[in-house]
């Protein structure tokens, strides 16, 4: 990131890319947080809700995430990840931290399953983040994974379980858990190569 890219007061932040927004946040510009929030909050709160199964908790996590972004924007390194992945990783970590502290994994999983996502109205601003057709494509790619591969991937991603914990809970040998997760990730990396290239 070039500091010269940073926003000056009055600049139209909507034309900024994500990295420029983070740079502006680092410079203490609150409107840049607002813009980043508009781009990602619906997706991030959905991710947190998928982990926690509780609307109030996931909104609190969202607040924590953006406060962390505000306070620690200087820690973002574009060489390590895209802004969207950085936000996803923070949201996921904070959600799983909260999940672990509550120790109500079974209840939340059930609650999350009861939720019918189709009933939600399409939120404003989502188009800035990920076009609907691309989301569908990702859902299709995930749907093409064999159920056993998808299961271990979801346990690792949404519940933050180690591979040993997954093996313990499912009764599957550890080696098999590792193989399934590896295969799933390799397939996704290949299938999503275009999207990944855009993020690099």
């Amino acid at each position: 990131m070039d500091p010269a890219d940073s926003a000056s007061p009055g600049t139209d932040l909507k034309s900024f890319d994500d990295k420029q927004l983070v740079l502006a946040i680092r410079d203490g510009q609150e409107p840049a947080v607002s813009e980043l929030y508009d781009r990602y909050s619906n997706m991030l709160v959905a991710l947190s809700y998928r982990v926690l199964g509780d609307a109030a908790d996931s909104e609190e996590v969202l607040q924590e995430v953006f406060l962390q972004v505000w306070n620690q924007a200087s820690r973002y390194d574009p060489a390590r990840s895209s802004v969207s992945t950085w936000l996803v990783l923070i949201t996921r970590s904070r959600s799983i931290d909260r999940l672990r502290s509550r120790k109500v994994k079974e209840r939340t999983a059930t609650a999350a399953q009861k939720e019918n996502p189709v009933t939600h109205e399409s939120p404003v601003g989502v188009k800035h983040v990920f076009r609907q057709e691309q989301r569908k494509r990702l859902q299709e790619e995930l749907a093409q994974l064999p159920p056993e591969q998808r299961e271990v991937l979801e346990m690792a991603f949404y519940r933050g379980m180690t591979q040993s914990e997954i093996a313990g809970e499912t009764g599957i040998p550890l080696g098999t858990v590792k193989t399934r997760t590896l295969l799933a990730m390799k397939k996704l990396r290949k299938a999503l190569s275009d999207e990944i290239r855009e993020l690099l």
Binding site: N42, M43, L44, A46, L47, Y49, R50, S81, S82, S84, T85, W86, V88, L89, T91, R92, P117, V118, H120, S122, P123, V126, V129, F130, Q134, R135, L138, Q139, L142, L153, F157, L188, L192, E195, I196, L199
Partner: peptide, 9 residues
Amino acid sequence: GLLAYEVEP
């Protein structure tokens, strides 16, 4: 990071 996009906003 892209896995999160599976979830409906």
